[in-house]
């Protein structure tokens, strides 16, 4: 058992290492941090640029492989390197991860819970009005790209604010800088900021989960054990709640871990549109600013997140389903 776990972890480590290395090589080849300095006004002397680049291990005149070894050596010691203008990559990512977490937790939880409920209700009354309505809604939401959805929400929010003459929804950033007032005021301000991005994240999640849960429900509704439960004398409602929903919930819970893991780096659009300085936004920014070390670190983190999510979903599956339980 321990040996098996070890093998799996080693396999994960290898995957992360290879993925991060590939990402580093690609970034170091394709991105050009030198241009950041050369584009400055006034343009610094070449020797200064070279010195700066060399200090941050970004000098394109050093052979790629040498830079890679330096970088990899640092990473092994826990040093993710510095950004092109000298910040510590690790600190910056840490800050950004906090922002992302504050953004997505609510959206993901809200989306999955609501989605499962909608899907379960739709599945039980297949072809009923609720089923039809939720199906149509899910199809429409799934067809709207996040960019469009986020922008639509902003347009609506501005319209609502204008009509009510009050700032109900705040469309940019995490909190109003320099806000005065007590803790209650601050919290309200944060909620106002959070409402729209949460809605934009949750809408897609609800659509996905509801479709998924509906199909799981339909599979289970036909199952023999529902018939057994009713043959025991349980009412249909009770049988569905106690036996069908419990069994049909397993895939949704394991899927939850996956979504969470992928959104840690994947909420790029939501973060950018609503001006949250999280991981996803950093990803885009690091590419725009030719920041090789940040790009590599983000890749590393993304790989880690995906693998941990898959591990978590496996473990959750085992916890919830005695059929796959260890032992």
């Amino acid at each position: 058992m321990a040996g098996f776990l070890l093998r799996r972890l080693v396999n994960y480590a290898v995957l992360i290492a290879v993925a991060a290395s590939l990402a580093y090589m690609l970034a170091a080849t394709a991105l050009d941090p030198r241009s950041n300095y050369e584009g400055r006004n006034p343009r610094p002397p070449a020797a200064v640029i070279d010195a700066q680049l060399a200090m941050y291990n970004l000098d394109d005149r050093t052979p790629l492989f040498e830079r890679y070894l330096t970088w990899a050596g640092g990473v092994v010691r826990g040093d993710l390197g510095r950004t092109w203008n000298g910040d510590l990559v690790a600190d910056r990512l840490g800050r950004r991860l906090g922002v992302t977490l504050r953004l997505i937790v609510l959206g993901v939880v809200l989306g999955s819970v609501a989605g499962v409920l909608v899907g379960a209700c739709a599945g039980v009354r297949q072809y009923g009005w609720f089923d039809r309505l939720s199906t149509v809604a899910a199809f429409v939401v799934l067809a709207i790209p996040t960019v469009v959805l986020a922008n639509m929400l902003i347009i609506c929010a501005i319209w609502v604010n204008d009509h009510l003459g009050a700032q109900i929804f705040l469309v940019s950033g995490e909190a109003t800088p320099g806000l005065e007032g007590g803790a209650g005021e601050g919290l309200l301000d944060r909620v106002k900021h959070l409402a729209l991005p949460t809605l934009s994240l949750a809408a897609g999640q609800i659509a996905v989960y509801s479709r998924y849960q509906r199909n799981m429900m339909l599979d289970v509704l036909e199952a023999d054990f529902i018939r057994t439960a009713m043959a025991k004398g349980l009412r249909r409602r009770t049988a569905l709640l106690k036996h069908a929903l419990r069994t049909a919930l397993i895939p949704a819970v394991t899927y939850f871990a996956f979504t969470f893991g992928s959104l840690l780096v994947g909420a790029t659009i939501t973060e950018s549109v609503f001006g949250w300085h999280g991981m996803g936004e950093e990803l885009v920014a690091s590419i725009r600013t030719n920041d090789v070390n940040s790009v590599a670190a983000i890749s590393c983190f993304a790989a880690l997140a995906v693998l941990l999510a898959s591990l978590a979903s496996d473990v959750l599956h085992a916890v919830l389903d005695p059929r796959v339980r260890v032992g």
Binding site: A19, A23, A30, L31, V265, L283, V284, I287, I298, A303
Partner: peptide, 10 residues
């Protein structure tokens, strides 16, 4: 495991 978005962007 590779972040597709990032690779394509680069």
């Amino acid at each position: 495991v590779l972040p597709a978005f990032l690779i394509l962007a680069i």
